[in-house]
Design a protein around this nucleic acid. Structure first.
Length: 112
DNA sequence: ACACTGACCACTG
DNA sequence: CCAGTGGCCAGTG
């Protein structure tokens, strides 16, 4: 993959994540689906893994399709993701979101 | 160049 | 319903 294409893909992922409303969450697959065939859920996860330096990217609002906080270990502290979600009104228990379907935000449906 | 891994997902039996 | 499997694409040893 060319560096420019890679940067473009990263940028797209970050843009979508930034658009996730406060108190709502989305999934890797939803982002991949929204960005199109050139992306895949794994690539979205990989992009998020490289989002350490990127400011204003609420990575805690991105979970897997079951609402599980699979990425929590990649935060500063393992509890950070859970705390951030809880503060925003998202119910988290045992590393998964309770009211997932209520707070789920699909970019391909919510964006034009 | 090869094999394995990964913040994933959908299909199959 | 659960486990296994394949696809996805890039990074790493």
């Amino acid at each position: 993959m060319n560096r420019k294409l890679k940067e473009s893909f990263f940028k797209d992922v970050y843009e979508v994540v930034k658009l996730v409303p406060h108190g709502r969450v989305t999934s890797y697959g939803a982002i991949a689906n929204y960005l199109g065939a050139k992306s895949s859920a794994r690539m979205v996860g990989w992009a998020m893994n490289s989002s350490h330096n990127i400011p204003d990217v609420p990575a805690h609002r991105v979970v897997n399709r079951n609402g599980m906080l699979t990425g929590k270990h990649h935060f500063d502290t393992p509890t950070k993701m859970e705390e951030l979600l809880t503060v925003e009104g998202v119910k988290v228990s045992d590393d998964k979101i309770i009211n997932f379907k209520e707070v789920f935000w699909d970019p391909s449906l919510e964006l034009i």
